[in-house]
């Protein structure tokens, strides 16, 4: 790109206006990303939609089947789609609110003037930096049927379940791993809490507001943009969960069959590319709709500083 100002291009340079040169520079700098947008997003996205109307095993040419993939997913005999959706919804519906509530709670405590605050903060943040595969290795060891967690539960007289094996409990085991990694949220809330001006609390204190009242009428509204951010990220992340589920079950536990592992097994184990694309399209639409619903609902409770109400 440096050649533009050097030799070789001199004749063109004389005829090009400054405006044209700036435009050319813009598109040269954007070139890698524009190629990326087309090759990694736009074309594959359209291709996913097209493939979802076909039957394709990668060996024979794709066969156009219209809406058959969708109908067999949604209403077909023995379709696992609803099972995967139910499991994913259970996982998201517990993990997201629990993480949200605990992150806010711990952030509030960490925001108090306590000794060793930095150490506490690091302790809460540390697990969230660990790669998921390592997290699963660690927790499979802790939650093994005769592992340390069950042996601790045994000392208080509780007969611990086979956490990551029993189809009825495997989702709970996965949720525990998710809760353990809540540190990113804690740090975000902590930063947001530190940005709340003190005078707001002092003013309500003069009005005789107690701690609960202050929490309701100052802390929550001031945190609401970050709550929304965490809520949307949490929902999207939980709906797309893959690695934990796969490493724990290899896809062979009906109790933890979730949407992306379901897509994975159809695409990369059964070579059902059209069927898998239909799952991808449904998941994409669900994520979009859910995000829009949450954004719309958030207008009622998100408070933006500087907004005239």
């Amino acid at each position: 790109m440096g050649t533009m100002t050097r030799s070789g291009r001199a004749p063109t340079r004389r005829t090009m206006s400054n405006r044209t040169r700036e435009t050319v520079a813009f598109y040269l700098f954007m070139l890698p990303w524009i190629v990326g947008i087309l090759a990694l997003y736009a074309v594959p996205l359209v291709a996913s939609v097209v493939l979802s109307f076909t039957d394709w095993d990668l060996f024979q040419p794709p066969q156009w089947v219209g809406l058959r993939n969708y109908s067999s997913l949604l209403t077909g005999e023995g379709s696992n789609f609803w099972l995967a959706l139910r499991n994913t919804a259970y996982y998201a519906a517990i993990l997201v609110p629990v993480n949200l509530a605990l992150s806010i709670g711990f952030a509030l405590l960490l925001n108090k003037p306590i000794v060793l605050r930095r150490w506490f903060r690091t302790a809460f943040y540390l697990p969230s930096t660990i790669p998921i595969v390592a997290v699963v290795m660690l927790w499979s060891w802790l939650l093994a049927p005769s592992g340390i967690v069950n042996s601790l539960l045994g000392t208080v007289g509780v007969d611990g379940p086979a956490w990551l094996v029993d189809p009825a409990r495997v989702k709970d085991g996965l949720i525990i791993m998710g809760v353990w990694q809540l540190g990113g949220g804690v740090v975000l809330f902590l930063a947001a809490l530190q940005a709340i001006p003190r005078y707001l609390y002092e003013a309500t204190m003069l009005d005789g507001a107690g701690p609960w009242r202050q929490f309701r009428s100052i802390t929550v509204p001031m945190l609401s943009p970050i709550i929304l951010f965490n809520l949307i990220n949490g929902i999207i992340g939980a709906l797309q969960v893959f690695t934990q589920v796969y490493v724990v079950t290899q896809g062979h536990n009906a109790g933890a069959l979730m949407l992306v592992p379901f897509l994975y097994e159809n695409a990369f184990e059964f070579n059902k590319m059209g069927y898998a694309s239909a799952i991808a399209v449904l998941l994409f639409v669900m994520i979009m709709l859910l995000t829009l619903v949450v954004l719309r609902w958030s207008r009622r409770w998100v408070h933006y500083e500087g907004e005239v109400s």
């Binding site: 291709a47 797309q240 893959f242 994409f284």
Partner: peptide, 15 residues
């Protein structure tokens, strides 16, 4: 592009 989930493009990309 931030709103496009990775699995929405995974099959064509693999192909």
């Amino acid at each position: 592009t931030l709103m496009i989930p990775y699995e929405a493009t995974i099959v064509p990309t693999f192909v």
